[in-house]
Design a protein around this nucleic acid. Structure first.
Lengths: 116, 116
DNA sequence: ACAACTGGTTTATATAACAAACCATAATCC
DNA sequence: GGATTATGGTTTGTTATATAAACCAGTTGT
């Protein structure tokens, strides 16, 4: 596909900054606690909670809500294999698109679609 | 700043896929016609129009609406110097963040904030 | 004259992001 | 032992956003 079109059509579930941060962070951990993830990303709890829900619905992460010693609530998150593949793929595509544009972009100084 | 925080706080005016595509395309042209930009990015007219308005309000692009031979309406767009700097900076930051995470991310497999 | 096309803009809607308020339990203080 | 604060989040509400669909003025074709 043309690089600019590909760029314009990037998956926004993954591309959104907060979620890209979450997913990339999770790619580097086997398991992350909610509060750890909050500190890493700097997001508010409410915000993080919403983004996690969205990512879980998309099948990119798995959320486990449990209690420590049957008392203290604790939410742990891990990335799914699909999630991991999706983030890696996203970063690779970003890089590839940017590279493609850098190479061919120099001689694309046309003002209209027909090249008139 | 910590790379995950920086990632989560990226400027969304620039980062949004359609606008990143528009800005990156404009960086490679001295001037672009509306329809040319539409073909490059694959966006609908209405959608493109809205994104352009937003980018203009942000001072990243300049829009010139005029008539060809006093008859045919034509909208041409060029990127401002601030806009050009902002997109280049955005791509550079994305790359730098990704690189930083790749380097230090390997040993960040901690489950909680305190490193307990 | 009427239909269809150009080159867009405006409007409407559905979704999104985010902050603020909330809630249950637990530990702390007096 | 009652109130107070802290922990670990979730729910709710507001505002902004992205997108499609409808529209519009002018022009060209028949």
């Amino acid at each position: 596909m043309l690089p600019y079109k590909e760029l314009a059509r990037l998956d926004k579930l993954i591309h959104e900054p907060a979620r890209l941060s979450i997913l990339t962070a999770l790619s580097a951990c086997t398991l992350a606690e909610f509060l750890f993830l909050q500190e890493l990303t700097g997001l508010t709890k409410g915000n993080l909670s919403c983004h996690l829900t969205k990512l879980e619905k998309g099948g990119l992460i798995a959320i486990d809500k449990h209690f420590v010693r049957k008392k203290i609530p604790q939410t742990t998150i891990r990335i799914t294999s699909e999630g991991k593949a999706a983030v890696e793929n996203h970063w690779n595509r970003l890089e590839a698109i940017h590279e493609a544009i850098r190479k061919q972009g120099a001689n694309s100084d046309r003002r209209n679609a027909s090249g008139e």
